[in-house]
Protein backbone atom coordinates (compact mmCIF):
# COMPACT_ATOMS: atom_id res chain seq x y z
CA UNK A 1 0.00 0.00 0.00
CA UNK A 2 2.81 2.39 0.94
CA UNK A 3 5.17 1.12 -1.74
CA UNK A 4 3.69 3.13 -4.57
CA UNK A 5 4.63 6.32 -2.67
CA UNK A 6 7.96 5.05 -1.35
CA UNK A 7 9.14 3.99 -4.81
CA UNK A 8 8.00 7.01 -6.83
CA UNK A 9 10.59 9.48 -8.11
CA UNK A 10 9.50 12.74 -6.51
CA UNK A 11 11.94 15.09 -4.81
CA UNK A 12 11.53 13.77 -1.24
CA UNK A 13 12.10 10.19 -2.36
CA UNK A 14 15.55 11.17 -3.67
CA UNK A 15 16.69 12.72 -0.41
CA UNK A 16 19.05 10.53 1.59
CA UNK A 17 17.12 8.61 4.30
CA UNK A 18 19.70 9.57 6.94
CA UNK A 19 19.15 13.24 6.08
CA UNK A 20 15.38 12.89 6.55
CA UNK A 21 15.82 10.97 9.80
CA UNK A 22 18.10 13.62 11.28
CA UNK A 23 15.77 16.47 10.25
CA UNK A 24 12.80 14.60 11.77
CA UNK A 25 14.62 14.27 15.10
CA UNK A 26 15.67 17.95 14.96
CA UNK A 27 12.06 19.03 14.45
CA UNK A 28 10.91 16.86 17.37
CA UNK A 29 13.54 18.29 19.72
CA UNK A 30 12.71 21.81 18.56
CA UNK A 31 8.99 21.27 19.25
CA UNK A 32 9.67 20.22 22.85
CA UNK A 33 10.54 23.83 23.68
CA UNK A 34 7.36 25.28 22.12
CA UNK A 35 4.16 25.85 24.12
CA UNK A 36 2.20 28.29 21.93
CA UNK A 37 -0.40 26.98 19.48
CA UNK A 38 0.71 29.00 16.41
CA UNK A 39 4.18 27.56 15.77
CA UNK A 40 2.99 23.93 15.58
CA UNK A 41 0.06 25.02 13.41
CA UNK A 42 2.39 26.70 10.89
CA UNK A 43 4.71 23.69 10.87
CA UNK A 44 1.83 21.24 10.48
CA UNK A 45 0.33 23.03 7.48
CA UNK A 46 3.78 23.45 5.95
CA UNK A 47 4.69 19.76 6.37
CA UNK A 48 1.42 18.54 4.89
CA UNK A 49 1.93 20.87 1.88
CA UNK A 50 5.53 19.65 1.44
CA UNK A 51 4.50 15.99 1.49
CA UNK A 52 1.77 16.75 -1.06
CA UNK A 53 3.92 18.85 -3.41
CA UNK A 54 7.36 17.23 -3.13
CA UNK A 55 6.36 13.70 -2.17
CA UNK A 56 3.42 13.24 -4.51
CA UNK A 57 1.15 11.83 -1.81
CA UNK A 58 -2.54 12.70 -2.32
CA UNK A 59 -3.96 15.07 0.28
CA UNK A 60 -6.96 12.80 0.87
CA UNK A 61 -4.73 9.89 1.84
CA UNK A 62 -2.71 12.09 4.24
CA UNK A 63 -5.78 13.44 5.99
CA UNK A 64 -7.25 9.94 6.23
CA UNK A 65 -4.19 8.84 8.23
CA UNK A 66 -4.04 11.99 10.35
CA UNK A 67 -7.74 11.88 11.24
CA UNK A 68 -7.58 8.95 13.71
CA UNK A 69 -4.45 10.52 15.14
CA UNK A 70 -6.29 13.76 15.87
CA UNK A 71 -8.50 11.86 18.35
CA UNK A 72 -5.32 11.34 20.34
CA UNK A 73 -4.41 15.04 20.07
CA UNK A 74 -7.86 16.18 21.19
CA UNK A 75 -7.32 14.29 24.46
CA UNK A 76 -4.55 16.81 25.25
CA UNK A 77 -7.07 19.66 25.24
CA UNK A 78 -9.52 18.24 27.73
CA UNK A 79 -6.82 16.90 30.04
CA UNK A 80 -5.25 20.36 30.12
CA UNK A 81 -8.59 21.97 30.85
CA UNK A 82 -9.55 19.51 33.60
CA UNK A 83 -6.13 18.84 35.17
CA UNK A 84 -3.85 21.85 34.51
CA UNK A 85 -0.61 22.47 36.35
CA UNK A 86 -1.56 26.12 37.00
CA UNK A 87 -5.07 27.28 36.17
CA UNK A 88 -5.16 30.36 33.90
CA UNK A 89 -6.84 33.63 34.88
CA UNK A 90 -8.89 34.39 31.74
CA UNK A 91 -12.05 32.39 32.45
CA UNK A 92 -14.06 31.67 29.32
CA UNK A 93 -17.00 29.79 30.87
CA UNK A 94 -17.64 27.21 33.57
CA UNK A 95 -18.73 23.60 33.34
CA UNK A 96 -20.51 22.98 36.63
CA UNK A 97 -18.19 24.38 39.27
CA UNK A 98 -15.09 24.01 37.08
CA UNK A 99 -13.84 27.15 35.34
CA UNK A 100 -12.40 26.76 31.84
CA UNK A 101 -9.46 29.12 31.32
CA UNK A 102 -8.29 30.39 27.96
CA UNK A 103 -4.62 29.79 28.81
CA UNK A 104 -5.18 26.11 29.53
CA UNK A 105 -7.20 25.62 26.35
CA UNK A 106 -4.41 27.24 24.32
CA UNK A 107 -1.73 25.04 25.89
CA UNK A 108 -3.91 21.99 25.26
CA UNK A 109 -4.30 23.01 21.61
CA UNK A 110 -0.54 23.54 21.39
CA UNK A 111 0.27 20.10 22.80
CA UNK A 112 -2.36 18.48 20.59
CA UNK A 113 -0.97 20.20 17.50
CA UNK A 114 2.54 19.25 18.60
CA UNK A 115 1.59 15.56 18.48
CA UNK A 116 0.15 16.16 15.00
CA UNK A 117 3.44 17.78 13.90
CA UNK A 118 5.29 14.68 15.14
CA UNK A 119 2.85 12.54 13.17
CA UNK A 120 3.11 14.60 9.98
CA UNK A 121 6.92 14.48 10.06
CA UNK A 122 6.82 10.75 10.65
CA UNK A 123 4.56 10.47 7.62
CA UNK A 124 7.01 12.55 5.60
CA UNK A 125 9.70 10.04 6.47
CA UNK A 126 7.71 6.82 6.22
CA UNK A 127 5.79 7.63 3.03
CA UNK A 128 8.84 8.76 1.06
CA UNK A 129 11.49 6.26 2.20
CA UNK A 130 12.02 2.81 0.75
CA UNK A 131 12.79 0.46 3.71
CA UNK A 132 15.74 -1.19 1.93
CA UNK A 133 17.31 2.17 1.08
CA UNK A 134 16.83 3.22 4.68
CA UNK A 135 18.65 0.16 6.05
CA UNK A 136 21.43 0.48 3.47
CA UNK A 137 21.86 4.15 4.32
CA UNK A 138 22.09 3.26 8.02
CA UNK A 139 24.81 0.71 7.25
CA UNK A 140 26.72 2.94 4.83
CA UNK A 141 26.39 6.33 6.52
CA UNK A 142 25.57 5.70 10.18
CA UNK A 143 28.09 2.94 10.92
CA UNK A 144 25.39 0.39 11.74
CA UNK A 145 27.22 -2.99 11.81
CA UNK A 146 26.26 -5.01 8.68
CA UNK A 147 25.56 -7.99 10.93
CA UNK A 148 22.64 -6.09 12.48
CA UNK A 149 21.57 -4.31 9.29
CA UNK A 150 21.27 -7.41 7.16
CA UNK A 151 19.96 -9.50 10.05
CA UNK A 152 17.18 -7.00 10.48
CA UNK A 153 16.41 -6.88 6.77
CA UNK A 154 16.15 -10.67 6.72
CA UNK A 155 13.75 -10.60 9.67
CA UNK A 156 11.74 -7.81 8.05
CA UNK A 157 11.14 -10.03 5.02
CA UNK A 158 9.42 -12.54 7.30
CA UNK A 159 6.44 -10.29 8.00
CA UNK A 160 4.31 -11.50 5.05
CA UNK A 161 5.18 -15.08 6.02
CA UNK A 162 3.97 -14.46 9.56
CA UNK A 163 0.58 -13.42 8.22
CA UNK A 164 0.36 -16.62 6.19
CA UNK A 165 1.40 -18.67 9.19
CA UNK A 166 -1.20 -17.06 11.45
CA UNK A 167 -3.91 -18.13 9.02
CA UNK A 168 -2.46 -21.65 9.01
CA UNK A 169 -2.43 -21.90 12.80
CA UNK A 170 -5.96 -20.55 12.93
CA UNK A 171 -7.16 -23.10 10.39
CA UNK A 172 -5.36 -25.93 12.19
CA UNK A 173 -6.97 -24.99 15.49
CA UNK A 174 -10.38 -24.75 13.88
CA UNK A 175 -10.07 -28.17 12.27
CA UNK A 176 -9.29 -29.65 15.68
CA UNK A 177 -12.48 -28.11 17.01
CA UNK A 178 -11.09 -25.38 19.25
CA UNK A 179 -13.68 -23.01 17.87
CA UNK A 180 -14.28 -19.30 18.41
CA UNK A 181 -13.52 -17.73 21.81
CA UNK A 182 -16.36 -16.59 24.05
CA UNK A 183 -15.72 -13.94 26.71
CA UNK A 184 -12.56 -12.18 27.78
CA UNK A 185 -10.88 -15.13 29.46
CA UNK A 186 -11.15 -17.39 26.41
CA UNK A 187 -9.93 -14.59 24.18
CA UNK A 188 -6.88 -14.22 26.39
CA UNK A 189 -6.16 -17.94 26.15
CA UNK A 190 -6.64 -17.70 22.39
CA UNK A 191 -3.92 -15.04 22.13
CA UNK A 192 -1.49 -17.34 23.91
CA UNK A 193 -2.58 -20.26 21.73
CA UNK A 194 -1.65 -18.29 18.61
CA UNK A 195 1.43 -16.45 19.82
CA UNK A 196 3.49 -19.42 21.03
CA UNK A 197 3.43 -21.41 17.74
CA UNK A 198 3.96 -18.18 15.78
CA UNK A 199 7.00 -17.14 17.80
CA UNK A 200 8.36 -20.70 17.77
CA UNK A 201 8.23 -20.85 13.98
CA UNK A 202 9.71 -17.36 13.75
CA UNK A 203 12.68 -18.49 15.84
CA UNK A 204 13.13 -21.65 13.76
CA UNK A 205 13.03 -19.68 10.50
CA UNK A 206 15.49 -17.11 11.83
CA UNK A 207 17.97 -19.81 12.84
CA UNK A 208 17.82 -21.36 9.38
CA UNK A 209 18.30 -18.02 7.66
CA UNK A 210 21.28 -17.20 9.87
CA UNK A 211 22.92 -20.53 9.03
CA UNK A 212 22.24 -19.96 5.33
CA UNK A 213 23.74 -16.47 5.48
CA UNK A 214 26.89 -17.72 7.15
CA UNK A 215 27.29 -20.67 4.80
CA UNK A 216 27.17 -18.24 1.86
CA UNK A 217 30.09 -16.35 3.34
CA UNK A 218 28.39 -13.50 5.20
CA UNK A 219 30.73 -12.65 8.06
CA UNK A 220 29.46 -9.21 9.04
CA UNK A 221 32.72 -7.60 7.97
CA UNK A 222 32.70 -3.85 7.38
CA UNK A 223 35.05 -4.14 4.35
CA UNK A 224 32.37 -5.35 1.99
CA UNK A 225 31.05 -4.16 -1.33
CA UNK A 226 27.46 -3.07 -1.92
CA UNK A 227 25.18 -3.74 -4.87
CA UNK A 228 23.21 -0.58 -4.05
CA UNK A 229 25.34 2.35 -2.96
CA UNK A 230 23.35 5.21 -1.43
CA UNK A 231 24.87 8.52 -2.53
CA UNK A 232 24.70 12.03 -1.20
CA UNK A 233 23.25 14.27 -3.90
CA UNK A 234 22.09 17.78 -4.71
CA UNK A 235 18.66 16.86 -3.39
CA UNK A 236 20.17 16.49 0.10
CA UNK A 237 21.74 19.95 -0.11
CA UNK A 238 18.44 21.51 -1.21
CA UNK A 239 16.56 19.65 1.53
CA UNK A 240 19.07 20.77 4.17
CA UNK A 241 18.78 24.40 3.02
CA UNK A 242 15.01 24.10 3.16
CA UNK A 243 15.13 22.87 6.77
CA UNK A 244 17.47 25.72 7.72
CA UNK A 245 15.13 28.19 6.03
CA UNK A 246 12.14 26.79 7.97
CA UNK A 247 13.98 27.10 11.30
CA UNK A 248 15.16 30.64 10.48
CA UNK A 249 11.71 31.86 9.47
CA UNK A 250 10.08 30.22 12.49
CA UNK A 251 12.60 32.02 14.67
CA UNK A 252 11.83 35.37 13.02
CA UNK A 253 8.08 34.86 13.29
CA UNK A 254 8.36 33.93 16.96
CA UNK A 255 10.54 36.96 17.75
CA UNK A 256 8.38 39.45 15.82
CA UNK A 257 5.07 38.26 17.24
CA UNK A 258 6.68 37.45 20.62
CA UNK A 259 5.02 34.03 20.85
Amino acid sequence: MLEQYQMSSHFLQQVNPTMKLVSMLLIIFYMITVFDPYTPLILLVLTVCVIRLFGGVPLKFLLLILLPFSLFSISFIWINVVFPDTRGTTILFSIGSMPVALENVLIGVSLGLRSLVFASWSLLFVLTTDPTRFMLSLIQHCKLPPRFGYGMMAAYRFIPLFKQELNQVRAAHKIRGLGEPRGIKERFIEIKRYSIPLLASAIRKAERVAIAMESKGFDGNRNRTYYHVIHWSKADLTFGMGILFVFASLYLIRVNFSL
Binding site: A155, F158, L198, L199, A202, I203, K205, A206, E207, F218
Partner: peptide, 19 residues
Protein backbone atom coordinates in the same frame (compact mmCIF):
# COMPACT_ATOMS: atom_id res chain seq x y z
CA UNK B 1 29.51 -10.85 21.73
CA UNK B 2 26.38 -11.71 19.80
CA UNK B 3 26.70 -14.18 16.92
CA UNK B 4 24.69 -13.92 13.72
CA UNK B 5 22.25 -16.65 14.79
CA UNK B 6 21.36 -14.74 17.94
CA UNK B 7 21.07 -11.47 16.04
CA UNK B 8 18.68 -12.84 13.43
CA UNK B 9 16.56 -14.64 16.04
CA UNK B 10 16.46 -11.51 18.17
CA UNK B 11 15.54 -9.48 15.10
CA UNK B 12 12.71 -11.81 14.13
CA UNK B 13 11.23 -11.81 17.65
CA UNK B 14 11.50 -8.03 17.72
CA UNK B 15 9.95 -7.75 14.27
CA UNK B 16 6.94 -9.75 15.45
CA UNK B 17 6.63 -7.44 18.43
CA UNK B 18 7.22 -4.38 16.26
CA UNK B 19 4.08 -5.25 14.30
Amino acid sequence: ALNLREIVVMASISVVFGV
